[in-house]
Design a protein around this nucleic acid. Sequence first.
DNA 1: TCTGGGGTCCTAGGACCC
DNA 2: TCTGGGGTCCTAGGACCC
Length: 432
Amino acid sequence: MYALVDGNNFYVSCERVFRPSLTDRPVVVLSNNDGCAIARSNEAKALGIKMGAPWFQIRHLEDDARLVALSANFELYGDMSDRMMSLAAGLGHQQEIYSIDESFVDVSGIRGDLVHRAHQIRSRIQQWVGIPCCIGMGNTKTLAKLANHIAKDAERKPGSYPAHLAQVCNLESLSQKDKDALFALTPVEEVWGIGRQISKQLHAGGVHTIHDLLQLDPATIKRGWSVMLERTVRELRGIPCVDLEDSGQARQQIACTRSFGKAVTDYRDLEEAVTTFASRAAEKLRHQHSLCGQVLVFIRTSPFGKTAQYSRSMVVPLRRPTDDTAHLVQAALLGLQSIFKDGYDYAKAGVMLMELQSDQVQQMELRLEDEPDRDRSRLMLALDTVNTRYGKGTMKLGSAGATQRPQNWTMKQMRRTPRYTTDAQEMVLVRA
DNA sequence: TCTGGGGTCCTAGGACCC
DNA sequence: TCTGGGGTCCTAGGACCC
């Protein structure tokens, strides 16, 4: 039995905690470069703003509808997330943090009224952190996600679902008849794991609601679609197929990619950007105690532009698995060198670290001319310690750019709010 | 003028192995 | 006329998630 705790309009809700004047107003949070809307308040959704809508297309709503747009402040959201997660964990024995605003909690064997308990956790999160959230519960993770969707819609769109399911919805406390009614009300595209393509195919086959989907037998689904969809349908029937994952598990891939604030044409600028991305990725790598076996670097022009298009990537294998910033940057720059072509307006670049493995495992090798340098790991530790204490980028590689040189590739963030909870210089001031 | 970033898993096809 | 069977690994691409 699982619960899914999910913050409502999470990024917007984080901003509202520190700016109550944003309450009841349409608010969106913009992606990096203030490119498109990645979070919307209910009022913004009501204006018809779609997820991912480009800012230049909706910007007229600033005047027309008092829309407020903010640049993404991920440092703030990450910190608010930590606070919310630690309270959500109190719901059961084990928690999987699934994304910045969602966590699954195993509530099997918890005694007492689960719905009551969930309401308590919910109001605690609201009061202590300031984030409104909804909680869905079901026998499988897919059902918990579905219950969460119902809890949200019941609250946001009165009449869509029975009102008593708003905010907290436990599917397992309902009768089969009531569950069937909810299944008949819910379109297949609301199910976790059913996206645009598959729902289009399902609709074409006359399958519109979860109720319709459950009429098909798993074998047919596997034959007609995939094992993934089969698994989803089994989960909807209450048969657990997806376990709670250990949140401490290391990622299999680490990426750092960015769009530039304006077109980049100069190789030097790309070199700075790629160095910075590889360094950032290396920090994340060391943070999860992994080593990397190969580095991918890519550059590309804007797919939306009318200028000449160019997009290339290259995988650079490493001499031996490493977490050393200098080695990873070196590999990334080697790749950059061979894919760079003069004369294009570059819009984006990125570095991905692949073939990750634990840093506790060491492949022994014959003595070779360049033996790994034991002091390097102490250097990396010093680098991370300095940058944690004095701020990102305090100490960096020379190719990341000298401070005197203007940075031509950094992203645009015209509307960022203060880092209220993580930077002493930006704390909220209260006047008595 | 202006369109994000970071992940996971599955599948099909080709190369190669015995 | 007739041309095996079973397996692994790698890659590219697609679909999905938030």
